[in-house]
Simulated scan of single mutants.
Amino acid sequence: MSTDPLPQPTLTDGTVTLRPWRDSDVRPTWEGHDEQVRHWYGERERPSLEQWREIVDTWRREHAEAGRTSFVIDVDGEPVGTVELRPVDEHTGELSYWLYAGGRGHGWATRAVRSATDWALTGADQGGRGFTRVQARVEPGNESSLRVATRSGLRREGVQRVAPGTGDRAEAEEYVVLARLASDPPLSEPGAFRSLLNSFLPRKRAIAQMLIRDEATPVPRVLLCQLTYKQDWDLPGGVVEVGESPQVAVGREVEEELALTLAPGRLLLTDWLPPWGGWDDALCLVFDGGAHPASITERIVHQAREIRTAEFCTAEQVAERCADFTARRVAAALATLGTGDGPAPGASYTESGRA
């Protein structure tokens, strides 16, 4: 990667200006170097004025020597914060940013990060930095910095874990990774705004299961699977893939795991599963798999990687073999089937199997 010195530009959106450091910036930014800056910057104590002067001088040298650019965020001639852009590789730059005491709560950080990102993604032939990707890594607890990144058009991509003591701060355990690409549409376009929202809005895991019953018994027996990856038994089914219909998913899972081709019926139950045993929370949707002859189990070819065996179980066996919340879910799903000649009740909603 070329490290030829690049002239540091001055950028402005009419309200916030990004410019090179001046000697006169050292004292006011040092005075604004409060506990919040020290915390997220990973400092145990405030640097002395002379140490801060040396840090600023280092930033100036690194722009000329290594392409690491540190801008002062200037509002009405006063330094209020810093935006820094570091090269990660030939195509990627990484942002960091902070506002000093007295400069927060005005939206200046968002304006500054937008300007820095636009410049970084502009081609070198047009006076930009020429990166194709600009990213930021923000600790999950730093909510203000996460808001700045998303409002600046950086999409949330995932979470990067770090070994203890290897992050920017000794306490850091993980970072949220956010990024903009040069090929992303302008933020003014509706599709770009929707994609941005979609990147950071909560996502819920969905599980689709099928309630398959033995038609010969007056009190329904239900088909349960003994799984390889946990001790308790469960209804057949599995995780819904991204972009997949839950109803399609449960049919696919039953065919993959048991080699049974059954058309999923109506939705019987939506059960919210709270976080448990290392799993995040999820929604479990139980679909009607119909009543079938007990001999259907003879057609089962179970997927050995996940399924040990599958068989029809009585209510007593369900209680004995299943986790308590699974047994409650099975009972709640059966209750929605209705009795007699009248119409069946509608789908029910439970939380961990409880109404």
Rank of each mutant, 00 (worst) to 15 (best):
D4Q: 15
L11A: 08
T17Q: 12
T17V: 12
R19W: 10
D23T: 15
S24M: 07
S24N: 12
D25H: 10
R27P: 06
P28W: 05
T29F: 13
T29V: 13
E31N: 05
D34G: 09
E35L: 07
V37K: 06
R38V: 01
W40G: 08
G42C: 07
E45R: 10
S48F: 06
W52A: 08
R53P: 07
E54L: 07
W59P: 00
H63G: 04
G67R: 01
R68S: 09
R68W: 05
F71E: 03
I73R: 09
D74Q: 05
D74L: 03
D76W: 06
G77I: 05
V80Q: 11
V80M: 04
T82N: 11
P87C: 02
T92G: 11
T92K: 03
S96F: 02
Y97V: 07
L99D: 01
G102I: 08
R104E: 14
H106W: 12
A109T: 04
R114G: 01
S115K: 00
S115L: 15
L121M: 04
L121H: 09
L121F: 11
G123L: 14
G123R: 15
D125W: 13
G127K: 13
G128P: 10
R129T: 06
G130H: 05
R133S: 06
R133A: 01
A136T: 06
R137D: 05
R137M: 14
V138K: 04
E139M: 15
E139H: 15
P140T: 10
L146H: 11
R147Q: 15
T150C: 13
L154F: 12
Q160K: 13
V162H: 08
A163V: 02
G167Y: 12
R169K: 14
V177E: 12
A179S: 13
A179G: 02
L181D: 04
L181C: 08
A182K: 08
D184N: 10
G191R: 09
A192T: 05
R194K: 15
N198L: 12
S199F: 03
L201W: 05
R203F: 00
A208G: 03
A208T: 08
R213M: 04
R213D: 04
A216R: 01
P220W: 07
V222E: 04
L224A: 11
Q226E: 14
Q226T: 11
Q231H: 11
D232Q: 11
W233L: 07
D234P: 01
G237I: 00
E244F: 06
E244H: 03
V248K: 09
V250F: 10
V254Q: 03
E255V: 05
E255Y: 12
L258N: 03
T261A: 09
L262A: 03
L262H: 02
L262Q: 02
A263Y: 00
L269S: 08
P275G: 05
W279V: 02
D280C: 00
D280Y: 07
D288I: 11
D288E: 14
A291G: 11
P293D: 15
A294W: 01
I296D: 01
E298A: 06
R299S: 14
A304I: 00
I307D: 00
I307P: 00
F312G: 11
A315D: 09
Q317P: 04
V318D: 04
A319S: 12
A319K: 10
A319N: 12
V330W: 01
G338Q: 03
G340C: 05
P343R: 02
A344Q: 04
G346V: 02
G346W: 05
S348K: 13
Y349Q: 14
E351C: 15
A355N: 04
